[in-house]
Nucleic acid binder design. Structure first.
Lengths: 147, 147
DNA sequence: TAGATACGTCAATATGGCTGCCCCATCTTC
DNA sequence: GAAGATGGGGCAGCCATATTGACGTATCTA
């Protein structure tokens, strides 16, 4: 039990640290990366969808998105079916930047995957899925539909 | 790959959220819990050891420990072999409180473990171990010696 | 037309990090 | 025994990221 808690703590914090330098070059923090990541993942995401994923307040997200827009990493378009919505997308530059950050994550994860073996990776996923509360599960599964 | 990143993000954040209410009752935050946790884990830990584990600065930790001491959850004693050191310990109240918080974590983890099966749990551990950089590994292993 | 929804924004506040600098007590080494 | 290294504490100031509550506007739906 304690082992799981600790490994999760160390694994998560060390993985996230892997991209701090890349972010700092643009004067951004981890919060920006999280937004960037999920926008990259699901282009034309709306604000309210992103709010659900990140589980932060509108104000917190607003600041982050403003920063990203100022740096021309993210752009918004008015929704087609509902003009109140804003659809979020990465700019070409945003795509490049996110890919660069993701590369650092991928490198770390890939070496952990390789060291542990495919079977372990499946177990890793299974346990983590079990940690997600029922009310959030639908959202996470929706994300992974188009992996 | 993206799946691993996402699951780690959701799994970690959702697990940590499980204890926010318990902490808030004492006016504490997650930083306090992390200190509490590792002191519970290894009584008579020194300040510098805890600093290495948490990988934060002395000042940040200082504030946290002050809060915990004020609430009489943690106490310090002068080191035996080296009188400059302070050995950190939970008070009886601290032990009770940490156990209560840990219980929330255990409940979440236990249900994830049960749903995934023992084999998956082993894989979960293996992958997470692979995420810990070589320079931190010795420290984590030392922690787990006396599980 | 009335109400709900999506988004934006103001002000104020809290938490948890950081840097740089300086202090004291104690241990170690010469 | 003196000099320097180490463990710990503390100050001032800063930054990033989150919170709440309230209010405004555009747009959709009944």
């Amino acid at each position: 039990m304690r082992r799981g808690v600790e490994l999760l703590f160390f694994g998560y914090t060390r993985l996230t640290r892997a991209i701090d330098d890349g972010l700092a070059e643009h004067g951004l923090g981890r919060a920006h990366h999280r937004a960037l990541y999920f926008i990259a993942r699901q282009p034309d995401l709306t604000i309210s969808e992103l709010l659900k994923i990140l589980a932060i307040t509108k104000q917190s997200l607003g600041r982050v998105l403003t920063d990203l827009a100022e740096r021309k990493l993210v752009e918004t378009r008015t929704g087609v079916v509902d003009r109140r919505q804003k659809l979020l997308r990465l700019t070409a530059e945003g795509v490049r930047f996110e890919a660069q950050l993701f590369d650092a994550l991928r490198t770390s994860l890939a070496s952990a995957y390789a060291a542990a073996g495919q079977e372990s990776v499946t177990g890793f996923w299974r346990v983590l899925e079990g940690l997600i509360p029922a009310e959030d599960k639908a959202m996470v599964i929706a994300l992974q539909k188009d992996i």
